[in-house]
Design a protein around this nucleic acid. Structure first.
Length: 263
DNA sequence: ATGTCCACCTGCTGGC
DNA sequence: TGCCAGCAGGTGGACA
C-alpha cells in the first residue's frame, strides 16, 4: 500500500498502542519477509519497551529501551491489524504488548521487512542513512531539490522516485506532485536547476507541490481520489485546461499526466 | 558514477 | 464459468 502519507497514518494508529508498552510476546509465523528476520528477533524484543515510534520516509522506527531500533517497512502490501487474532495465512508477525494490545503484521507479497539495528538506524543494509530529506521538513525546499536534480539526465519521474533525492514519495505521489506542479514526468530532472544548482521556478513549484500533496493526503486520512493517478482517458482537472490524461510507462511503472498542461 | 532493467511474491481484474 | 495475461502503492542488485 504505502507511501509516506499511508505510513504516517499507520504510525499515528500504532503510536498509542506501542509507546510506553513492552513486548510481552513476539510470534513469528515464518522465517522472514523480503529478508530473513535478524538473529533472535523475538528474544531481542521481548521484555523491552518502545520509547518512541517515529517515521523516516516510508520506514517506521521503534526505538527500544534495549538501545536497539526496530525498523519496519511495509513494502507494497504490508499492513497492521490492531487487537484482532491472527489467522490469515499472511499474518507473519504478532506483537503482544504489555498494554494488552495485539498488533498483527500482514503482508501477502512479503516485500516488507523488519530488522533490528543499533540506535539511529545506521548499519541497516541499504541504509536509512542514504535517505534524502524529509519532504515535509523545512530542510526540504526548492534549493535542496534543485541541488539533488542538478546534472541528472534521468526523468523527473525517476528522480523523485529515488529515495536519495527525497524520502517517502512513491509512484502515486510522484505523479500527483508533478501534475500539481505542471511538470511532465518525462522532463529531464536537470532542467529544474540552473547549471550552478540554483532552483528555477519549476523547482519551487515542484517542492511546494510535493509538500501539498503529502500534507493533503495525511490530512484527508484515507487514500481516496487522486487528481491524475489512474485517470487515463479522463479530462484534466486543472482549471482552464481541456487536456486528456495519458498513461505512459517509465521504468516499468505507470505514469499519468496531462500532455496539455504539464511541461 | 549514472541510468535502466529485473527479480522478489501474491492477489485481483479484465478479456477471451 | 474458467483460465490467463497483465498489473499493483517498493526496493536493491545486476548490468550497460
Amino acid at each position: 500500500m504505502p507511501e509516506l502519507p499511508e505510513v504516517e497514518l499507520v504510525r499515528l494508529a500504532l503510536q498509542p498502542l506501542l509507546e510506553g508498552a513492552r513486548f510481552d510476546t513476539v510470534r513469528l509465523n515464518r522465517a522472514g519477509l523480503r529478508t530473513p528476520f535478524p538473529a533472535d528477533f523475538a528474544g531481542r524484543l521481548e521484555g523491552h519497551m518502545v520509547r518512541a515510534l517515529e517515521r523516516r520516509g516510508k520506514y517506521l522506527l521503534a526505538s527500544l529501551s534495549s538501545g536497539e531500533t526496530l525498523v519496519m517497512h511495509l513494502g507494497m502490501s504490508g499492513s497492521f491489524r490492531l487487537n484482532e487474532a491472527d489467522g490469515d495465512r499472511h499474518d507473519h508477525v504478532v506483537f503482544e504488548m504489555s498494554s494488552g494490545h495485539v498488533v498483527v503484521f500482514n503482508d501477502p507479497r512479503r516485500f516488507g521487512f523488519m530488522d533490528l539495528v543499533a540506535a539511529g538506524g545506521g548499519g541497516m543494509r541499504g541504509g536509512l542513512d542514504r535517505l534524502g530529506p524529509e519532504p515535509l521538513s523545512p530542510a526540504f525546499d526548492a534549493s535542496t531539490l534543485a541541488r539533488a536534480c542538478r546534472g541528472r539526465r534521468t526523468s523527473l519521474k525517476a528522480a523523485l522516485s529515488d529515495q536519495r533525492v527525497v524520502a517517502g514519495l512513491g509512484n502515486i505521489y510522484v505523479v500527483e506532485a508533478l501534475y500539481r506542479a505542471r511538470l511532465s514526468p518525462r522532463r529531464r530532472a536537470a532542467t529544474i536547476a540552473t547549471p550552478g544548482g540554483q532552483p528555477r521556478d519549476a523547482a519551487r513549484r515542484l517542492a511546494q507541490a510535493i509538500k501539498q500533496v503529502l500534507r493533503d493526503a495525511v490530512a484527508r486520512g484515507e487514500r481516496n481520489r487522486f487528481r491524475v493517478y489512474d485517470r487515463e482517458g479522463e479530462r484534466c482537472l486543472t482549471g482552464g485546461c481541456s487536456g486528456v490524461i495519458r498513461r505512459i510507462t517509465q521504468a516499468g511503472r505507470s505514469s499519468f499526466y496531462c500532455p496539455a498542461c504539464q511541461r
